[in-house]
Design a protein around this nucleic acid. Structure first.
Lengths: 100, 100
DNA sequence: TTTACATTTGACAATAATTGTCAAGTTAAT
DNA sequence: ATTAACTTGACAATTATTGTCAAATGTAAA
């Protein structure tokens, strides 16, 4: 399974775009985009949607991958991370039920 | 299902402790503990383990509830939150496999 | 009803985390 | 050796989180 950074880098290269081309459109330094692609930094939510547009990536699946990594980041080195994920799922579903 | 704040407040009251008793042990103002109990603020990870000790709450389940709320916070008002949770689960399990 | 105490509220200060720039350092292809 | 793309790391700017404080509100006993 590919990371957000890998997805972005692969598509950017496939399109023959340079870091400076894409980072200019994002209005950030190439350094940050480089780090995002290598997983050294997280992108912002806004940058993700912009990148999906610029690189013509499926917005939904890129976003899901991005959010998943944010979640994983929250529970990294937590012993009960998986249990917390399961509880979170139950709770989000319960919330949704109530809204209908 | 009870929130972290509800769990804390109920147990504190059951033990007959005042906000100032507990907040003193946490070395914070009563205002913050009040807000934590009412869900207006998030506790820190450290405060959660301290609270479990002070109030004699099961550390593991309090932590799981707390982490779950942190996760939910990350994906609140995201359309694909549930999908992200599922992907996160897959990824964490995959990671664990690789470690064995 | 007023006194005394517990809790809540909101403005804002302190601290910490995130996001960014910049310049110098690699790498790789001429 | 030059050049262009990318990487690295120090640190600056910005934003988010965590906290204090004082005033307001609730609560119950004297």
């Amino acid at each position: 399974m590919k990371t957000t950074g890998e997805i972005i880098r692969e598509k950017r290269e496939k399109k023959g775009l340079l870091l400076r081309h894409v980072s200019a459109q994002l209005d950030i330094d190439t350094a940050i985009l480089s780090k995002i692609e290598r997983g050294e930094r997280k992108a912002t939510r806004d940058q993700i949607t912009k990148l999906a547009n610029i690189l013509e990536l499926d917005k939904e699946s890129l976003l899901i991958q991005y959010l998943s990594e944010k979640i994983l980041y929250e529970i990294q080195d937590e012993d009960f991370g998986i249990q917390a994920l399961k509880v979170a799922e139950k709770q989000i579903k319960y919330k949704m039920m109530r809204k209908l």
